[in-house]
Amino acid sequence: MSSGPDRLPLTVIGGYLGAGKTTLLNGILARPDGQRIAVLVNDFGDVDIDGRLLASAAGDVLTLANGCICCSMADGFAETLETVRGLADRIDRVVVEVSGVGEPRRVARWAHLPGFTPDGVVVLVDPLSVRERATDRYVGETVINQVAGADLVVMSRSDLADEADLTGTEAWLSTTTDATVLRAPLPTAVLLGPAPRNLSTRTDAEAEADSIEDGATTPASPSHDHVSISRHLDGPIPRSSIDTWIRARPGGVVRAKGLVRVDDRPDDRTVLQVCGSTTTVTVDGPWDGGAEAVVAIALPGTPRAALVKWLNLLG
């Protein structure tokens, strides 16, 4: 992103004990998809950082050779966010791990602090156990609240579960949450959204398709089939076109992000954001003269033409 009132996108990742958070966080740190990601964990025991990846360690901050960092929140959440804000020139986004009995939607409230902007609540579920957990006397309500508060639900261990478990869990989830439900593994850009620099470096005037860089370290992953489309905008867009755009969103869109100017607030930067089922429109400060652009990422099989048409609704 360009200079100006940059805020670090903050994504919250939750899910009950054993849902696969550690696997997911390790995957993000190992394959950050070209983004410099700060992963905030309850303690370093929650991740398993390959020693060859580690560039340096200082107190509660581990720095990886690929530009990512991992921070322990042992000293408190507010203190850790302050530390991360001080590292803003070294990172592109923040991922926060929520404890197994925490409610990710509540933790996401912290993303409104200065220097940050909310970028989705992702909740992991184990397709083999989540339905049983949801009826547990002590934690059933917690599990349901986690799932109900998600923008994006990711079923871990999809490769270990049989299709009946997966479809059964998907059917249960559809009655429990409005969130978009996906099966792991997923590329980082789908989980967390496009790299911020994709928005600032585009110069193409029309919507254009390209592929997601995912590090290509997991050939079995379906990531190559995900569809990414971006569009450069020029000048303020009508407020009404945003409403139209939100309503016309094609099925299959998982993530989208736009930095735009709007006709009724032409001097401010307006942020459009799609994470799973949720679309938000916020103002994050005065317009800084940077690029105006929007990027969308969709599931495999989503027609490119539909995405191009959708992005062209803005303006």
Partner: peptide, 16 residues
């Protein structure tokens, strides 16, 4: 609650 109280920034941290 804490996420909103932390908006008070340095004053919040100094109190604790």
């Amino acid at each position: 609650e804490f996420p909103a109280m932390a908006l008070a920034g340095a004053a919040f941290r100094s109190f604790f």
